[in-house]
Amino acid sequence: MKKIVAALAACLVASAVQAEDYPAETVTIVVPYSAGGVTDSYARMIQPALQERWGQTVIVENKPGSGSMVGAMDVARADPDGTRILMTAYGVISNEVLMPDIPFDLADLSPVYMLGRGSNMLIMRPDYPMDDITDIVAWAKEHPGELKLASSGVGASPHIAAELLANVAGFDFLHIPYQGSAPSRLDVIAGRVDGMMDGISSVAYVESGDIKAIALAAEERHPSLPDVPTFKEKGIDFVFGTIFGFYVPKDTPQEVQDEIFAALDAALHVPETEALLNKQGMDTTRRTQAEFQEIVAKELDQLKELVAKGRLTPQ
């Protein structure tokens, strides 16, 4: 019954928003990935807190498709009243550069709140002869195109991470894309490829000895892996991680955006949530909306540079 009432309300009440009484109707968080994915789980995690704060029904809606572009377009074309919020990972940024033919423009969205930044690490097969990133880079420079690095897919963040690393360190590798990080990790474990950039979540395999962790693409070492150095420590200026963030249509009134920011901040910037996210390797440094927008812009520049150097090919 509740559902019907909510649906009725959503359909009937279509009036102009006024910032002070936002939200006046059901708010939908659009997740451009399938139910059960990481992004989806984060969205569902904060849904109750938002519902409580706003006194309105908050719905998580999955709109997967075209590498997260279906959901992103849905929000970009929605009414700019803050009732449809996009919660997404890196795809919205990378596809802007890598899939220029898609009728979607990142400029149609306004980045509001940055949940955090995942971290990546370089993992290698257990029997790989070298353990030190300096040695690996030196070897890769001498043998261009021979280091076999897997990824979870073309244009996915591990692929971009590997290309960025190669760009910074100055070597070429043989890219072997897979569909998803689990199958690619399996081939690292089996020794069919040399290594890959992976999320911190694969720490269980490091502990069980199935893979070797070489270096971390973060500012600081991770508590779960105290012995693994960062690239920076080893003199390679390379920090990278997927960005989880919330976006609204660009013409949404600033007061509404401010309220969404405040609500998300209140829901997420609590110790337990942060601890959970940190455990999964997420850097949850608090960032203002302006800082988030700056970060998005910087990522775009970085990607464009990779494209210009021919390391990534847009489709």
């Binding site: 559902k3 019907i4 649906a7 009725l8 359909c11 719905i59 809606e61």
Partner: peptide
């Protein structure tokens, strides 16, 4: 679809 399974679809556009 809309009541038991709770799929959000317009039953009659603009009205329901």
């Amino acid at each position: 679809f809309t009541m038991i399974l709770g799929v959000r679809l317009p039953v009659i556009a603009g009205v329901w």
